[in-house]
Design a protein around this nucleic acid. Structure first.
Lengths: 365, 365
DNA sequence: CCATTGTCAACAAACGTTTGCGCACGCCCG
DNA sequence: CGGGCGTGCGCAAACGTTTGTTGACAATGG
């Protein structure tokens, strides 16, 4: 036992080290400590006092109270990410992208799950605004979305990601869903499928309508007239996909292939095919969207439209920080080119190519 | 076009409605508005003034500035969840549990990913402390963890979840890993397996050592002496599980069964078995731990030890809020009884039973 | 030797709340 | 009619920072 009177890290258990306390101990005014701690460039100070203060700062491990700082400086160094459900691997990866980009800049990130409920979304945003978060990244917006307009009106910096809204003039990061939907459908057409079902997203959400348009466009390009019964709304959950797939497969002349608006809904369809004893891809081919990690683990693995999920989050964070830095709302849009990844759910014996590297296809303004 | 001079929501675009501004408009002192807004019980006020103020509050949709409020009241209504990686479905579900329990109480929740790095963990906690979060839920703690001791010393309310630390006297929510490890191993023993490999967690983490102890205890109970070469450390990632499984299966007399410390590592082993052409469960049986959603989607589905993940988060949040409310650090521990779920990765043709409902096995103090 | 300049650090206001205290006014009752 | 009491609300301090301005003192130059 070396030294019975071992010192604790902080001499006394008093936790909140404030400028005033330090000032008393250093025999200087609080403002002086503040300037030293903040490395105020236009501060001239006598070397001895500076060293005395710096020593004290190190000794006490002083960190300014972020709340007080936030009040004075009008910035909290907190961002918020609003998503339907972090339990969905797509949104989990998206969040990581945001944190990985924002954390090095000193930001912490709040996570808000809405479960797709406009009410929860609104209530979260109210709360975030009251907390004076520096910005919001929203991946749960609707095509017509009062809360987006509210954000705009309140002057809160924000970026929409994956789903756009209204006129699409908000700062946005996402993929070209029209192209993506077309790619997926064309792939099935080229494989010879003629009755292709679509597990469609909601008409209230941009991804839903745009991927559906891509699907229809691909059919039209082949001169095929779409069968309305082959398009059934599934939402974005596994269960939703399962129910919709059941309806599709109960049809008299059922589709030989399905394009699902999302990997998770595709997974739902997978389960149904399994339960019905339909072999994938021989009796039913399936294409998803997003290329979540789960896609490669299905057996057979899931053909899907790849988008750089992590990069969605990171790019959105960068766009947001840019707005915060400049103080100017942006209208920049970063659109990635989706890329078809052919796997076993459409083609027997298909391997997955090396992980594709995507770069922004184009960015306006 | 009805009414060209349509009013906007707020009469002018000035966003930050402050007490002072309202006070000027209502011809009263800011403090009076504050008391009305907060429904101060011991406030006596003339009905007319009250109504005037309440009308104004509604009209302007006044919400007190949370930062200023936090400074004065010394509570931010912000919690933080610290985890290795939200991309792991286990932690995503855990987070949902926390948010679902904390959100109704007016809290927002910060999410911090450490990737298992002590440095990142420490830096996150420093930041959280500077922000004066009201409490921390930590699911990334090590057996010997300076940051846990630091939390204790700083007097920051906290709860450990899934992994305990040190003496295990911190407020904690988790499962009985010793029992869980034993259940998994006994199941394999009962199936007749005698060479059972273990994809082990790290010795620096409580789940790692405890589940390993459970594994060894089950072997010992059968009078089997464990083969050291059958225990290989895998960490907690899919890749880690894959690498460890490769080593295990490269052994001269390789194991016929594997108990993996975690579902994700089990998934890694799954992949290896697939690549090696080993049939599961006939040539290799696999048991995981945690029962993440992915477990039911593997083919064959994964036998695993079920723990109520969402409830982990919710219980931890409740424990944390309790400490915050009382102002007293707690020593309560909530331990759930793990439950073996037999599926196709150990027994051919095994169905999954109805979702088990778990209640806390016991709670100390 | 006095005025000017320069160096160092203190002063004070402000950010937007909350809350204990006290003041003025009108009413009642003696 | 006057003292006391209750009602209704304002005053001001405090939470912990940041930052523009001012002031004291020493040094320097003419």
């Amino acid at each position: 036992m070396l030294g019975t009177g071992e010192r604790l890290v902080n001499e006394d258990m008093s936790m909140p080290v404030t400028l005033k306390e330090l000032a008393a101990r250093a025999q200087v005014h609080p403002s002086t400590i503040s300037r030293v701690a903040n490395h105020d460039p236009k501060l001239r100070i006598a070397p001895p006092t500076r060293q005395r203060i710096e020593a004290l700062l190190r000794e006490t491990e002083y960190r300014p109270n972020g709340v007080a700082r936030g009040l004075k400086l009008r910035q909290t160094l907190v961002l918020a990410v609003v998503i339907p459900d972090v339990t969905n691997p797509f949104f989990a990866a998206l969040f990581r992208g945001v944190e990985d980009a924002a954390s090095p800049r000193g930001y912490n990130v709040l996570l808000c799950n809405t479960d797709g409920s406009p009410a929860r979304q609104r209530s979260h945003l109210q709360s975030l605004h009251a907390r004076r978060v520096d910005g919001v990244i929203m991946a749960s917006s609707f095509l017509k979305d009062p809360t987006v307009r509210w954000l705009r009106h309140q002057g809160i910096p924000y970026v929409l990601v994956n789903r756009f809204s209204d006129d699409g003039h908000d700062p946005f990061v996402g993929s070209d869903d029209l192209v993506g939907g077309r790619l997926a459908t064309e792939h099935l057409l080229e494989l010879g499928h003629r009755r292709i079902g679509h597990l469609a997203g909601k008409l209230t959400v941009s991804t839903g309508v745009t991927r559906r348009r891509g699907y229809l466009a691909a059919l039209a390009a082949r001169g095929l007239t779409p069968d309305p019964r082959l398009v059934v709304e599934s939402g974005y959950t596994e269960d939703g996909g399962a129910h919709a797939a059941e309806r599709l497969l109960a049809l008299a002349d059922r589709p030989t292939a399905i394009f699902a608006v999302t990997d998770m809904t595709a997974v739902g369809a997978f389960g149904v095919a399994l339960r019905m004893g339909l072999r994938v891809p021989e009796e039913l081919a399936i294409v998803g969207y997003n290329d979540i990690p789960l896609a490669t683990r299905m057996v057979p693995s899931l053909t899907t439209v790849h988008v750089p999920i992590h990069e969605f989050g990171a790019a959105a964070a960068r766009l947001l920080l840019e707005q915060i830095d400049t103080g100017e709302p942006s209208r920049r849009r970063v659109i990635f080119n989706p890329q078809l990844i052919v796997r076993g759910s459409t083609v027997t014996g298909a391997g997955s190519p090396a992980n594709p590297q995507l770069v922004p296809a184009f960015a306006t303004e």
